[in-house]
């Protein structure tokens, strides 16, 4: 079941998405985290961030909006308090790094480069919920390339930009990431949306807009993963509404090397484990032994209806 993201080996292709798994401590009260291929920890910045005022979340049809605002305790607290706990487990730890300026991303990369318990950095250039800062990194391919190469120069760890779907052509950003020296790209982050309460005629979220996640975004994410996998030669990590093993297999077929389980963990804390079991069974049933044997193997042609 192992796959490789650059020089990093994941024991299986199923990881958990940043912002949906905290720093592991809470889910470790439910299951052994060593079963996961990897953990992408919550967005971490140089300095602590307070986050956005409530209301921060609202459920929509087959999905949810969130506007957390990257609340976190900062990178020093991550290294002192969170990383040692995570390193008890036999799984790969990826730190989702967040900054307002290129120098902040590079500084985070330098600081984390010294940490043997960190396998890689996911560059968060795509959070839709923060007022200042990194919007240009998500919306201008040149800026994406610049931030990726700055992080690349600052660290020997695996570098994975996380791309925004809130752009006209996501493949331009995948290409810019590859040009900047990324080892892989992960996509998609959430789609910007909103919701209104008709009784009070008020927005459901204090921040007005939030990021839409969950099963409702899966077809969009799958299409974007397919497009990016066609465009770049580095691995693509698929994210977006993956809730079941069939969803995960679809992403692998579309071209993903690994996947991240996000909102599904809220609906079912054991979702990632069930997906691991399901993908493994699917491979076995098809006489295969490695997920890489199905990566990108989607074909065109008729499919009989099953009603």
């Amino acid at each position: 079941m192992a796959v490789e993201i650059g020089p990093v080996r994941l024991k299986n292709p199923v990881t958990v998405a940043s912002g949906t798994f905290g720093f592991g401590r809470e889910y470790a009260q439910l299951f052994d985290l060593s079963q996961l291929g990897g953990i992408f920890v919550k967005g971490t910045s140089l300095e602590p961030r307070r986050g956005n005022p409530p209301q921060r979340i609202y459920e929509t049809a087959a999905g949810m909006l969130n506007s957390i605002g990257l609340q976190n305790d900062g990178v020093e607290a991550f290294i002192a308090e969170k990383l040692p706990f995570l390193n008890q487990f036999d799984t790969q730890i990826f730190v989702n790094i967040v900054g307002n300026r290129i120098e902040e991303y590079a500084e985070l990369a330098r600081i984390l480069d010294d940490q043997p318990g960190v396998a890689g950095l996911e560059i968060n250039i795509s959070c839709p919920n923060v007022e200042h800062g990194h919007a240009e990194f998500a919306s201008d391919p040149t800026a994406t390339c610049n931030v990726v190469s700055a992080v690349r120069r600052a660290t020997g760890k695996v570098v994975i930009p996380k791309l925004s779907p809130n752009v006209t052509d996501i493949t331009a950003f995948a290409r810019a990431s590859e040009d900047g020296g990324a080892d892989a790209v992960s996509l998609i982050n959430t789609l910007v949306g909103t919701a209104i309460d008709v009784k009070t005629r008020r927005f459901r979220l204090a921040n007005v807009t939030g990021g839409l996640s969950g099963p409702c975004i899966k077809p969009i994410a799958l299409r974007m993963v397919y497009q990016c996998a066609q465009t770049v030669s580095i691995p693509v990590i698929g994210i977006g509404g993956i809730s079941t093993w069939t969803d995960a297999v679809e992403f692998l077929l579309a071209g993903a090397t690994a996947i991240q389980v996000g909102t599904a963990s809220f609906a079912n804390p054991l979702a990632a484990l069930e997906i691991i079991d399901g993908v493994e069974a699917y491979l076995q049933d098809n006489g295969l032994n490695s997920p890489s044997q199905i990566t990108g193997k989607v074909e065109r042609g008729p499919v009989d209806p099953v009603l």
Partner: peptide, 17 residues
């Protein structure tokens, strides 16, 4: 009582001041 997603502290969706 608030809206919640994960219920165990990871999502930080149920923020209180």
């Amino acid at each position: 009582e608030t809206y919640m997603a994960c219920g165990i502290g990871t999502c930080v969706g149920c923020a209180i001041k």
